[in-house]
Design a protein around this nucleic acid. Structure first.
Lengths: 339, 339
DNA sequence: TTGTAAGCGTTATCAA
DNA sequence: TTGATAACGCTTACAA
């Protein structure tokens, strides 16, 4: 360290005490006489002491670091999640080392290794590139959020129940046909698959005409937009004159749909009724603030931290790891002008 | 550490070499015979060795940690900035410990102390709560982005030139009156003040009727929106029938203005011409994708990293800190349908 | 209440 | 090419 670097040794020399006493001044102040405490406090001040957590960590064994693996920050959802985790510092005292894996498996493996070698005590994983099986074997507690989670603990939004709420809201208002827009090739083991199932189940139960329309994994916004505009065309052509209820798998998509319908001067919520998913800011900032199924991000994050901290603490005690635990957070219906 | 924790000692014992040789195997492989290298490699594999960077750091003195202090992640700008910093890992190898100070000075001080005690080698500061004077005294190199920067190095968008571009674009298209919307009480020592100056200077130079309209620091989106809607009313009442050029200090505000004017079926870009600032996604996703002055976030971040890494390296050599350096990045005009 | 000494997992400096 | 040995800054028995 080329920095100042006042150490316990310096304080000890300056005060005439031993290193141990200085250490105890911090860890067990009561075991030092008030008078000596003052002496040490003074020395600390004079020598401008800055604690060195890293040395502390090495000696003691826990870093209070948590590794955070996110897929991107472009989507508001992940930014919001990250913000809550960072904010949890006040409550839990864990610091976060964040990596953006960019959906590249090799990169994510590398980052996990980096994280492990910095002795992170746990991992929060939001990216979906690596299998939970692989993650389970990385040597530290792992908690997943909204991703495939067979072999690791996780916290997920109850996507199925959210989809049911959305679909029932639309169905209840008497739509002639129900449409759901989602990405193609959604695998059944990821939580978000519940959005499709919930939609389909409600429609079938009620015997309403319905269809799931899909788009390919987007490369960027323009690509996504052009695909969605294509879907809007399809809908217009296929269901003219009918009252259409549209449930989109994200707010970003709902926004594109609403913009286009608004430009075409369609009647919302007369001919079209629309509801998104996520509860991201765009739902409130769109040309028509729209209804959405809001994920309770604070609860997702809060539960994830509780799960992880609990596992970290049992790991510290040398106890064997517990069975993976899966928590579920209910989403909330935000009813706005589009339904 | 309750974890596996294979160490050089274990490898040494297993192979019959000394700790030193194991260390050298990693740092100077050439100084170990190929044959012995194989032996060690094999032991590493068998014992499932995971390197311990923390111990390495303690011994060698640099952490390759950079502390990042951001004001929030709600604004897309900061999320995007964070994303680029995280992405710079590939190039520079620095890890980031991120804190969200939430604009609370006490919290930020505390976080800086935390960061220092984790031996971060440098600090990137985007939050604007603490003075650059205070930051300059924190003992490690600091680089600021888009904030007051008198006593520390910094990278800023050329806000003045961006405002000039925006204003000239509007003025050149023949507006009767020019309006600029910005927050009230902008201090003159922050870079963003250039947005007002650029606007005013161009208008005065060209002798165009102009006005700066301000709103109070927002508490949340709804609060901001209601203030902006008030401003839109003012504009409508004050300048009926005139061709109005509006330059807003952010894309978020431009979006609110455009939504409202669109709802009121105003002619854009006939009666109203609008340009935002930032280049955030909303400018492309709005009901009318709008013109904006885009900050080149990749360049801001790239330059900040170069500045900081340079300072970190001179600090490692024990050299005295250099004079603060101030870099400026030109923003880019994105010309869309609203101008 | 205080001090001694060993240890945490590396790297660095000498010798051999 | 390899190995002792002493750091790095702190914690933690165990003694005093």
């Amino acid at each position: 360290m080329s920095k100042k670097g006042t150490t316990y040794d310096d304080i000890a020399r300056y005060t005439g005490f031993s290193k141990t006493t200085i250490s105890r001044y911090f860890s067990k102040p009561d075991s030092v006489t008030p008078k000596n405490r003052e002496i040490i406090a003074h020395a600390l001040d004079v020598l401008d002491y800055q604690s060195n957590k890293l040395a502390q960590v090495l000696a003691k064994g826990h870093t209070e670091f948590i590794g955070l693996l996110i897929p991107n920050l472009y989507l508001n959802f992940f930014g919001e999640v990250l913000r809550r985790f960072l904010g949890s510092y006040e409550q839990y005292g864990y610091k976060f080392i964040v990596f953006d894996g960019n959906n590249k498996a090799e990169a994510e493996r590398k980052y996990i290794n980096e994280l492990i070698s910095y002795n992170v005590e746990g991992l929060i994983v939001l990216s979906h590139t690596l299998s939970s099986f692989e993650l389970a074997g990385c040597g530290v507690p792992v908690v997943a959020i909204e991703r495939e989670d067979k072999y690791i603990s996780s916290v997920n939004t109850d996507n199925y129940s959210g989809a049911v709420m959305a679909t029932e809201l639309l169905a209840g208002s008497g739509c002639d046909v129900m449409l759901h827009i989602n990405r193609s090739g959604i695998n059944h083991d990821i939580p978000a698959a519940g959005r499709i199932d919930g939609f389909t189940d409600v429609c079938e139960e009620r015997g309403i005409l319905h269809e799931v329309l899909t788009y390919d994994a987007e490369t960027d916004y323009t690509h996504l937009e052009s695909q969605i505009l294509g879907i809007v065309n399809t809908i217009e052509e296929k269901y003219p004159g009918k009252v259409k209820g549209i449930f989109t798998s994200s707010d970003a998509i709902a926004n594109i749909v609403i913009n286009e319908l608004f430009r075409r001067k369609k009647d919302i919520p007369g001919e079209y009724r629309i509801i998104g998913f996520d509860g991201s800011p765009i739902s409130a900032q769109a040309i028509i603030p729209f209804s959405t199924i809001a994920q309770q991000i604070d609860k997702l994050v809060g539960s994830a931290m509780e799960l992880l901290v609990d596992q970290i603490e049992t790991a510290r005690d040398g106890a064997p790891p517990k069975e993976p635990e899966h928590l579920t957070i209910e989403p909330q219906l935000i009813d706005r002008a589009t339904t």
